[in-house]
């Protein structure tokens, strides 16, 4: 976990550096009044990112060779065989649930709100949360009804769904 944190540490610094440099270069194309602020912010962020990366690298270099570990700043470099299992689990867990969430977004756009909620909640509670079929069905139905009522009460805008609008799945009037 600590190693994952360290890798992400470098990853975030480099990502911010890259985006900041790009933003600074891009800001040169803007009119002067639109340019000041993004240029100031992106150059500052890029400069501090470089300082942070240099500090982190120096901390890692200093910590190498110390038998006790390793804490340099927040750095830790455990041995390969102990580090990967939790890191892999953490990443796998993240990937799994972000895919579930992305799946809802796709259903939401394609099928519209009531259908997407019904299908996704049932699937999530049954297959991701490993609850019983009955509980999944009851939860999906009750959440869908609650959300329909809430959306009506608060006049929320909800998409009908691309497939339903085009009549591919079921006619729109049925919903």
């Amino acid at each position: 976990m600590k190693t994952l944190e360290r890798r992400f540490d470098y990853g975030i610094s480099l990502f911010i550096l890259a985006v900041s440099v790009f933003a600074a270069v891009k800001s040169l194309e803007f009119q002067p009044v639109s340019q000041w602020f993004p240029l100031f912010v992106s150059v500052s962020a890029a400069a501090i990112s470089i300082v942070v990366i240099v500090f982190d690298v120096l901390a890692d270099v200093r910590s190498k060779g110390r038998p006790d570990a390793v804490e340099a700043g927040d750095a830790e470099i455990p041995s390969e065989d102990t580090e990967d299992t939790p890191a892999r689990d953490v990443l796998a867990g993240f990937a799994k649930y972000i895919m579930w969430f992305a799946g809802f977004a796709v259903l939401f756009i394609l099928l519209g709100m009531p259908m997407a909620v019904l299908v996704w909640v049932f699937g999530f509670i049954r297959f991701a949360a490993h609850e019983s079929w009955l509980r999944a069905a009851i939860s999906a139905a009750s959440i869908t009804v609650a959300l329909i009522l809430l959306a009506a009460f608060l006049a929320l805008a909800l998409p009908h769904g691309l497939l339903i609008d085009s009549g591919v799945v079921i006619p729109r009037w049925r919903l």
């Binding site: 977004a105 949360a129 939860s139 959440i143 959300l147 909800l158």
Partner: peptide, 23 residues
């Protein structure tokens, strides 16, 4: 959480969609 998260996520997604009502 397994019972709570789906409800919260659906509420979040619908809330987010209200911002500009675009995918």
């Amino acid at each position: 959480p397994g019972r709570l998260v789906p409800f919260l996520f659906v509420a979040i997604a619908i809330s987010a969609y209200q911002a500009s009502q675009k995918p």
